[in-house]
Structure formats: structure tokens, C-alpha cells
Nucleic acid binder design. Structure first.
Lengths: 196, 196
DNA sequence: ACATATACTGTAATTATATACAGTAAAATT
DNA sequence: AATTTTACTGTATATAATTACAGTATATGT
């Protein structure tokens, strides 16, 4: 978005504003009218420039066929994570969510499997909004990778080392030591539950 | 949404799906193609019916000029409910949410106050998605009004009558009898938690 | 200096789209 | 039983919209 000219930003904002208030993108004529261009081609040229710079996409031949690239790439919903695969690998994406109800920036949603965080009010099948980070603060709920397994646990750190704690009395803590291939994939920032 | 016919629902869903995947509403021709109508007028007539039933709006003369009414109005987020006021009264609306991440139709979100449903995994400050109904099935979580107070409780009904049960052992059940002004405001269908 | 990008006006053609009108037929309502 | 609603096909047309082409002028990059 940084190398857009002042006029290109204006055109981009008109498109965004139209989507917001009308629910659909503007036509060339509408853009021209709003920005007081006397030729529809002025809008057309700007659209071409915006496509070239990668911030919008055009659907040729289609009326109002303009898509914001930021909208296209929604938030992936990760179902189960195949052993050993990167968490956001294509095969792990269950679907793509195009609205983020949480007030925080979320990189992906993870569908919770199992009851290990039940005492933190996170149930089987809940969707956890995750912000990707490599580190965590003491006490935060994190998505961690242990060898090939991805789990949701509370992160605890003290003089004796790092522990991953389940919020369920029937699960025991995991002490992280050198024998384990351990990494933090992200920090849980919110949840969505679709089935009450 | 209840008096839509099967075909009208199909057309409505095509519009919704187009908005979801294209970012703009479909044309009559696109609807006809997807639903295998051989005349664009079939789509046009259905659109007119949907407008008449109040679930969409048309922008005459504008290509793709279709708006979903549910998108226009947004979903109110109810904070605290003033004693005696209708739940969705203006003064109770904290803000309006323009995206519904839950797969179900939601009439309003209610911000949970207190710990009474903690054992159901519903915490203080969670947002509960509520579908407005006047009745409930045994075992459902409902938004109920008792005299002037609005609460979230599990609805239990048997031969001895109606009980409102908190999911927290330190709360006692409320037996609904004739002395109480009791009504059901809605059914909880999902939750959103913004603060983990 | 030269090419390319920006920022337009103006014209025009083809195609996309909305929308009305004329029918037919079955189902639901009154 | 009569009327209205639903659910289409088929035709037609005015207008909405995309998009190419021809210019002009200034600014920016190489």
C-alpha cells in the first residue's frame, strides 16, 4: 500500500467506502462522479494502476467487478494439523473466515480438539483466534508445537524452566526440556463458539 | 425469514454466497445460471418477492443493486439492560456489530455479566449470540427476564414446573412460579470471547 | 534526454444488466 | 370455486457499464 499516489489512494478509498456503505463496489462512472473526474476513463486508468500495484483485482467484463486484495485473503481456519506440517499449510486449512469479530488482530483460527483447556472455558470444537508469535509471556495461553504435535496450553515459565499446563485437572503438566523439539506457534487472543 | 419458500431461500443463499465469495451481489443472469433457470426473469421475480418479504433491498437501475437487510442493520450488542426497559431499547445498545461469525442467525449479542454460567464455559464479559424466541426447549441456555432483571440461565422444565438453573454450584436454582413476572427473551446460540 | 508513469478529457463501441410484458402451470389461500 | 402466490419460459428494450482508442500535459525515473 505504500507506493500508491495521493490520487490512487483517493480512488482506493472510494472503492472501500462504496463497499462499506452500499455493499458492492462502484462503477467507473460512480468513481468519476465522486472524485469529480469528467471522464470515466480517469477512473478506469486509476483502477488499472491499482491492479498493477496489487491492491485490488479486476473481474474483466463484470460490472462492478472489483475486489480488494485485503478482503480476498481472509483468515484461515485450521482444523486438524497434520503431523510435521507447517500449521498454516494448505492441507490444514478447513475454510477461510472473512470476518473477524474479535477486536484484536488474528492470523488464524484453530479448531480446538479435546478437553484440555476446559477449566479456562475453552471447549472441544471452539475456534481459538491466534496471533502468530515466536515467544510468549508467563501465563498466556499459547499454541505450541511439541515434536510433531500441536497443542493449546497455558505457558508457564520460572526459574525451573518452561512448563505447558493444561487447564484440566485430569491432565498433567508437560515440562519442556532439551529432549523435546519445542516451539511456540502463537498466542490465543479470543474464542468463538458456534455450538452451545 | 420464516415465510420464505424453499426456492426463495435458494435465491437468497445465492446472493449471500456471491457476497461472500465475490465481494459483490450477483446479477439476475448469474442467479439464473447458478440455479439453472432458463429465464433471467425467474431471478427477477424471486428478487421482487424477497424485497416484498423484507429480507433484501433493491437499488433500482443499479447493476448488482441488491442489499441484504441483515447486513444493513447490523447486530446490536446489548451491554447492561436497564431495569424494566425492553432488551433491545436504544439505551441498552452498546454498539452495533456488522459481522456475524456464528453460523446461525443472531438477533443480538448480550455481554455476560457475572459468573453464573461459568461451568458451561461462559465467562464474565463474554458476548453471547442470542436468537429471539418466546419459548425454549428443556436444557437450552436462554436469556430470561424475571421481573425487571435479565439473566442468562439454563432452562429446565419438568412435571414440577419451570426452573432456571445457573451453571455454577454457588448459585441456587430459581423456580418460576406465578408470583414472578417471567418471560423468555431468546435462546443463546453461540459465544465470542475477546479477552483471554 | 528519453522513456515511463501519472493524471486526466473526450469519444465510441460492445457487452452487461435491469426490467417490463406476455404467457403457462401448479400450489396455496381465501 | 375463485383468487392470489409461486415458479417459471421466452422475448424485447432501454440503459448501465466496461473498456479500447486518441489525445494533452506534467512529473518522475534512468
Amino acid at each position: 500500500m505504500l507506493n500508491l499516489t495521493a490520487q490512487q489512494i483517493k480512488v482506493f478509498d472510494v472503492i472501500k467506502e462504496s463497499l462499506q456503505s452500499n455493499g458492492y463496489p462502484p462503477t467507473r462512472a460512480e468513481i468519476a462522479k465522486i472524485l469529480d473526474f469528467k471522464s470515466v476513463n480517469a477512473a478506469e486508468s486509476h483502477i488499472k494502476a491499482l491492479v498493477k500495484k496489487g491492491v485490488i483485482q479486476k473481474v474483466p467484463g463484470s460490472s462492478r467487478g472489483i475486489k480488494l486484495v485485503e478482503e480476498i485473503s481472509g483468515i484461515p481456519l485450521i482444523g486438524s494439523v497434520a503431523a510435521g506440517s507447517p500449521i498454516m499449510a494448505f492441507e490444514n486449512v478447513e475454510k477461510t473466515i472473512h470476518s473477524n469479530p474479535l477486536n484484536k488482530s488474528v492470523d488464524f483460527f484453530l479448531r480446538v480438539q479435546g478437553e484440555s483447556m476446559i477449566d479456562a472455558g475453552i471447549f472441544d470444537n471452539d475456534l481459538v483466534g491466534v496471533r502468530k508469535t515466536r515467544s510468549a509471556e508467563n501465563g498466556e495461553i499459547v499454541v505450541a508445537r511439541l515434536d510433531d504435535e500441536v497443542t493449546l496450553k497455558r505457558f508457564k515459565k520460572d526459574s525451573s524452566g518452561i512448563k505447558l499446563v493444561a487447564e484440566n485437572s485430569s491432565f498433567s503438566d508437560i515440562a519442556v526440556d532439551e529432549s523435546l523439539d519445542f516451539s511456540i506457534e502463537g498466542r490465543a487472543v479470543g474464542i468463538i463458539r458456534e455450538n452451545l
